[in-house]
Structure formats: structure tokens, C-alpha cells
Design a protein around this nucleic acid. Structure first.
Lengths: 183, 183, 183, 183
DNA sequence: GGTTAAGCGAGACGGTACGTCACGTCTTCCT
DNA sequence: AGGAAGACGTGACGTACCGTCTCGCTTAACC
């Protein structure tokens, strides 16, 4: 079992990392600073998360958990039960909303990631999207189309639209794009 | 005017960087090594290109020049004259082909870039694509759609498809996606 | 406590620096080369010694330790017990001998030093010499005279006499000078 | 012949260097800054003075000229005519005074000099001092003693005494030292 | 409740990349 | 034609980062 202090430190680190990301430029959030801000030695951070990528992934995962649950077992249209096209639209709406609220975290993850396309999160998202596409419009190359759609979620684009406060323009644009493609 | 030796060194550096990128892992291509491989002092590299990002941008630009020329003044369908939809398809074909041949360079640029969306290349590509979309299908949010389409060209995706040799699957998928959207 | 590897590296660095100084021109002994010769990263050298001056000081200190011990607790005439004049003569003999054997190191230190007169070594030497002068000949301005005498030990002078193999001429000249002054 | 503008630039450079040395820390007086302050291209500085050492030497020489003249053809006791001991005392008084007024310049020269002991100025001073010593007290090793005495004039010591405003203590100490030695 | 060993915490340490700076050269232009 | 200007080349220095390693401590499970 994880010791009590270990759990406490894990939380402290995640929280410190989040706050630093929120308040500072990405490049300024070094592992050292995270450790210091968490009131913890650097070794602890690495012990707990392996490396920068691990920390950032953990950060993302903590923010993504709710969505995953909603998708796999929540109520429609996000969860099972609704028609694929609706689920897809709902999913991208949710993802855009999620990414909007956590741009810095997503950006940090992307930047630290060595193999983004094979990270658990991307893989699961891709599987979900591709599955929905396949059942909605079998004539499409579902696998590829899923990649292309998910490509729209890169943090730099999110950041750009967030800066001008047009995130819903992004969301609606994506939704109509999906609608057109699945027709 | 640029001095003769300066020009020679600039070429040597660009060439050395390219060769190193081709033969080594991206992380191993340090500025020092580029300098050494070019037979030039490290200071020279920084003097000429400012920083890593500058070098990588220059590298990309050198590879992109031909495409830019073809787009602005070459023969149709890439250049002016063809209907927008054809030009768009031709453009993405060309970009995929270009990116395929220079994945390492593109990846290096992305990784070193602090503000990809505002880099000259992205800006010009986006302007071109958005313009074509606007004239082909005025009902679309051209600006946004251009961003979404260009999002498909991230190096990690290119790399993935290149590894399995399916780059034409990517190209054709993109083309049909564009066709659907512009309809 | 100092970690085992740290101690090992410290020794390796000092040794490499010494050998490089012995075999190369002072200007060619860069921190990079020292690191490389020691089989150690450059960061390690700076981590351990702060900067060039720190490294050179450490080098000198390592060579000076024996003399310091002999002065503070060794047998007369260098150590306590002998009359001040003898101790002074013995001290300068020893210092000249020491400096002769380590000209390059002393020169390197002088060159890298920003505030030679306040370096621990100079301060301790000066205190020792001034103390002896004061007790031998109270009528002298001991503090000042100590500075003047120590001024004779600049590496450029040592080097000059070393080149012509006349170091004992220097030593005996100094000794007789001291004798005259203390009379 | 030197062109008029060349001479003007030479003067401007020397003057700029002096002012910079007076108002800034030695390490901050780079050749670039001297050139800029003189309103002149960097190439001009190097063209005129060869390198940093050359510039600093020129600076020192410009300050030392008057003393040299006084020594070789001025009135006693500095110039010829007075007994050697007096001339020596007068010389060191003059040098201390000179060095005091120009510590920064002297320090800059020392620091930039590769072979101080063979610089024209040191050589001439040494010859003068050694000659006087030899004729005043033939039993001494004049050559060596001259070196030892001149060793007292290092800029770091001057600086130290200048900071505490005790330059006359230094001068009188030196004078009595000389008196004792020549007796 | 005390003991102990395994996990944990802390940060010193190692190494490499990046970027700055200053010196000195060299070409190009101007007078 | 020679001097002025500064772009250019070069290497050294030092910083900052990531990730490792060692040593001391804590804690949780067991006696």
C-alpha cells in the first residue's frame, strides 16, 4: 500500500505543478521548481513520477478521469446509448471544454511527451472516436479520420483561440465539420 | 550584402544539420554537434541563426521555398489558375509529400518552436488555405477550417504513417476529407 | 559528508588540471578541457569549484597545505619555536621553493583571481609574515612590509628566474634582503 | 605619414578608453565598448593598436612619458646629478604618485599584458633602478633587487592602499625600505 | 507499545545543451 | 589606395535543466 506521507506528497506535487503551470510560463516550470513549490525534495518528484513526462501525464490523467468515466459509463449522449454521431459531437464538445479549462496542462504534456500518439490517453480517445466513426459512417477510413480530427486538439491551437476568447467558435466549427464528414 | 564566407558557412551549417537530423535521433542533434559537423565554431551557428529555433526554422524554410514558389507563381493546379478546390487538394498533396520527405526536419522545427502558429511558414500556409476555402465554400468558417486541416500535418502523425509506409493513405484520406468539406 | 564519487571526481579534476597546466600553455587550459581530461562533465567542474578562479584556488591550496601545516605546527625553524628572523627566512625559502615547483599553478591562480590580496592563502601568508616582522623588528610597519616582501613572489618573476635556472639566486637575494630589513 | 583623421581617431580612442576605465569596472571595458565610446568602428581600434595589450600599453605610455623625460633629462633629484640614493628615492616617490593617479590604467595594462617583465616600460624602469642601486651599493645584487623593489608596485597593492587612502604610507614605507637596503 | 526493515524524503551530484561575450580578423565601402 | 566600419568567426565561460544516487529518516507492520 502507498504510505500516508507518500500519498500526501503525491497530491502536493500535482497541486504545485498545476499552480505553477497556471501562473508561470511553461518553460519556467522546471522539475526543481515544482519540487520546491510542493515543499518536497526533487528526488521525491522523480521517485513518484519517474520523469517529467510521467508527471505531466499524471497531471493530464487527473483532469481527464471524469471524462473517461462519463464516456464509458455515463448517461447519453456522452455515454453509451445515443447514436454514434451524437456521441461523437458530444465527445468533441466535452474534450474542447476540458482542454480549454486545462490548456497549460495539456501543453505541458504535449511538450514533455516523447510518443504522444501512443500515450494511453490518446490511444483511448482515438479508439473511441474511430469506433464511433466506423459505426456512423462505415465508408470512411475511421482510423485515419479519427487521427485527423484529434489533430485539431493540439494545445497551440487551443491556446490561440483561448487567448481571443473564441473557444466556442472552435467547438462549433469542429462540430459542424464532424457533421459534414459523417453525412 | 552577405559576405562570401558567411554564405558558405550558412550553407555548411544547414547541410550539417540536415545530415545529422537524417542520421541521428532528434535529441542527439545539439547545436554543438551541428557546429562541429559543419566545421564551424559554435558561436558562428548562434551568430547566424540566433538560437535553435532559428536554425530549425531556416532549415524548414530552405525545404519549403520550392513549394511556396510553386504556389504563388507556378502552374496549376498548385499555382494560380485552377479552381480553388483543385488547388487545395494539390496543395495538401504537395505538403504531405514535402513533409514526408522531411519529417525529421519538420519534427525538429516543431519541437524547437515556441510559437508555431505565428511562424512565417504556418502563417503563409494558413493564409493560402483559408483563402482557397473561402472562395470555394463561402459558407464555411474559412479561417478556422484552415487551422483544423493544417492540424493534420503534425510531425508525429506524419511519422506514424511514414513508419508503416502508408503516407498515401494519409494523403488520400486528407484529400477526400477536403472534398467532403468543400462540397 | 562528501559522497564517495564526489571525492573521486574532485581528485580527478584537480589532477587533470595539474597535468594540463604542466603540459600546455596556460591559455589553452580551458575548463572544458579540464573536464574532458578528467573524464567528467563540464557542469561537474563548475558544480564543484564554482568557476575558474575556484578551481585554480583549490589547486593552489592543495599544493600549499603542507607548507601551512609546517608553519603552524611543524618543527623549527619553519614552525613555532625559532626566533622570528629565522622563521621568516625559512618561510620565504620554503615559499620560493614551493612556488618554483608550481609556477604554472601559481600563475594560473594569479591570472584567474579577481581579488588576490583577499584570497585565503595570501591573507594567511601575510598575517604570518607580518606577525614575524612585528615581533622581530617592532619599529617597522609590519603590515606594509609584509605586503612588499610578498610582492616579490609574483609568478612572472618566478618564471623569469626559473627559465634561467637561477631560483636560488632569487631565494638568497630575498633572504639577505630580509636580513637587512630586520636588522 | 599618419593621416589627420587617423591621428584624431587615435586620440579619441585613448581618451575613450581612459574615461571608461575611470568610470567602469575593469572587466566591463571591452574593446567593443571602447570603440563605441570613441565613436569609431572596432576595426579601427585594432588597426591602430593591434590588440588589447597594445591599447593598454599605449595608454600607460602616454601617462608615463613625462616621468621618463624627467628621469632622463630633468632636474635632480629625479634627473641626473643627484646622488643615486636620492634619485632612487625620488624615482619611487614619483612612480607611486604616478601609479596612484592611474591605478586603473596600470591594472588594465598588467591584466592584458602577456609578458610584463619584458614590456618596454618595465625594462626601462628596471634598468634605471638597477643602475642606481649598483652605483649606490655595489655589494648588492642590483638586478635582482631592482626586480624585488619594482614588485611592490603591482596594481592590486596600489589599489588596496588607494582604497583606504593610505598611499603615502605606502610611499614612505617604500622609501625607508630603500634607505635601509642601500645603507 | 517497542522493533525493524522497507520504503520514502531530500538534495547533492553528474552530465549535457544552450546561449552570451569578448577578442581578433576580414571584407566591403568610403574618402 | 588606404583607412573606416562592423559583420563575422571562434572558443571560453557559466547557467539551467533533467535525471540519478546515496544517505538518513519515517512509518507501518509485526512481535
Amino acid at each position: 500500500m502507498e504510505r500516508a506521507d507518500a500519498a500526501r506528497n503525491r497530491r502536493a506535487i500535482l497541486r504545485a505543478a498545476e499552480e505553477l503551470l497556471a501562473s508561470h510560463d511553461l518553460a519556467e516550470v522546471s522539475m526543481d521548481r515544482v519540487a520546491a513549490a510542493a515543499g518536497v525534495g526533487k528526488g521525491t518528484v522523480f521517485h513518484r513520477f519517474g520523469n517529467r513526462e510521467g508527471l505531466m501525464r499524471a497531471l493530464v490523467e487527473s483532469r481527464v478521469q471524469a471524462l473517461s468515466d462519463a464516456v464509458s459509463s455515463g448517461p447519453p449522449p456522452l455515454g453509451p446509448g445515443a447514436p454514434p454521431a451524437s456521441r461523437l459531437a458530444a465527445f468533441f464538445d466535452a474534450v474542447v471544454e476540458l482542454a480549454t479549462r486545462n490548456v497549460k496542462v495539456m501543453a505541458a504534456f504535449e511538450q514533455a511527451s516523447t510518443d504522444r500518439l501512443n500515450s494511453p490517453i490518446y490511444v483511448s480517445w482515438h479508439a473511441h472516436v474511430a469506433g464511433l466513426i466506423a459505426s456512423a459512417t462505415p465508408s470512411l477510413d475511421a482510423d485515419l479520420t479519427a487521427h485527423l480530427l484529434l489533430g485539431s486538439l493540439h494545445s497551440d491551437l487551443m491556446l490561440q483561440f483561448l487567448k481571443t476568447g473564441e473557444t466556442d467558435r472552435l467547438a462549433s466549427g469542429l462540430r459542424s465539420m464532424i457533421a459534414t464528414l459523417l453525412r
